[in-house]
């Protein structure tokens, strides 16, 4: 059985792990709770999840299963606080957002033990598709309301 990579706290803002292939990943969370004034059930615990390669060749990471295991393990720790809500938005700066979505989907399909619910969305803003996912713990008492709010948010993304 494969283990997750050890997560290191490198500074006051982020975490990192280094793969066997020498690729260093940064993981950081941003608090967006202040933007959810219209959704009281979401208002205090909404964080975006971000993962970036900061050094090393990504080619060596393509078949590394421990990366996905590590990411899912990060979420299991994140959801020890049951009311936390995470949103993952696929980076589109290099137009590889679909590949990122597929990888993220695969990680959760393969390694999620069922405790985390992942709801996918597409927000269309100014004719641009923003691929995103909501992650919420199954035991969150407001789980269904949060998913409904997330769907509403995607539907309203193009409102003026």
């Amino acid at each position: 059985m494969l283990n997750p990579y050890p997560l290191q706290e490198t500074d006051e803002l982020s975490y990192q792990f280094v793969t066997d292939g020498g690729v260093t990943y940064h993981i950081y969370f941003l608090d967006y709770s202040y933007m959810f004034a219209d959704y009281p059930m979401l208002a205090n615990n909404v964080f975006s999840f971000n993962i970036d390669v900061v050094s090393g060749s990504v080619d060596t990471a393509l078949s590394d299963e421990r990366i996905g295991i590590t990411v899912v393990e990060v979420f299991k720790t994140f959801f020890k606080e049951r009311e936390n809500v995470a949103v993952y938005v696929c980076d589109s700066s290099d137009e590889r957002q679909l590949a990122r979505k597929r990888k993220f989907d695969f990680w959760f399909w393969k390694y999620n033990d069922g405790s985390i619910i992942k709801e996918d969305g597409v927000a269309i803003v100014e004719d641009v598709e923003i691929l995103n996912s909501l992650l919420v713990h199954r035991s969150n008492p407001l789980c269904m309301e949060i998913i409904f709010a997330f769907k509403d948010l995607n539907a309203r993304a193009g409102d003026k």
Partner: peptide, 16 residues
């Protein structure tokens, strides 16, 4: 759009 804001932040940080 919250998602637009999240994406812009993410891309800006990644580029940095």
């Amino acid at each position: 759009s919250i998602f637009k804001k999240m994406l812009e932040d993410k891309n800006a940080i990644n580029q940095h």
